[in-house]
Amino acid sequence: MVGEQPHTSFALQIEGLSKSFGKRVICRGAALRLATGESLAVVGPNGSGKSTLVKIVAGLMRPDAGTITHSFGSSEIKREVWHRHIGLVSPELALYEELSGTENLDFGNRVGGWGKMAADYAAALDEVGLGGRGNDLVSTYSSGMKQRLKYAAAFLKDPALLVLDEPTANLDEDGVARVWSSLARRTLALIIATNEPSEAERAQSRFVVGR
């Protein structure tokens, strides 16, 4: 297992958040707070804006109004460096097909300064069930294996806030079990955007988008 230092002081706070595309309202005046050890399910029907909310929280999109604060203890984190403590597993994120699984993890570690060693790559791949396939190009992976690799990268990064959009998409039974088991062992703030009631039930609270 890799990267299990707890981020005990992290907190995400959203106040007065509004986002719409034309007449389609994603959220209006939304507020929520999420801290380390807490989890939140973002739910809503297809096209309601779950992925949009995920992007806003991750700093990949600006809201129309409202404030989003990421902080460690009393120190607020500048938006420009949110990426340092956020992990994302989403259909909107892909890893490099022309690199191997291990090369992808090595790239993330080097460019992100995650401070991990080569042995950690193997441990992360083992944890998601990709042990022995690390040297294969990602282009040869199935869609389920690519999803597992995204989790390996997210776990290796050891983020304070992990955001999952459609968390079990393309995963088989073993993959789903591994992911939930790994998440249960980690201490972090977790956001799960999903249509699946069984996935939403794993979170402590819910946020409904599109109303």
């Binding site: 990426h83 992990g87 909107e92 994120l93 892909a94 990268a153």
Partner: peptide, 16 residues
């Protein structure tokens, strides 16, 4: 186009 930009944005500093 390949959606690796999201990975890059969440991993690498802008300068890099």
């Amino acid at each position: 186009e390949t959606k690796t930009a999201t990975f890059l944005r969440l991993t690498a500093p802008d300068d890099a």
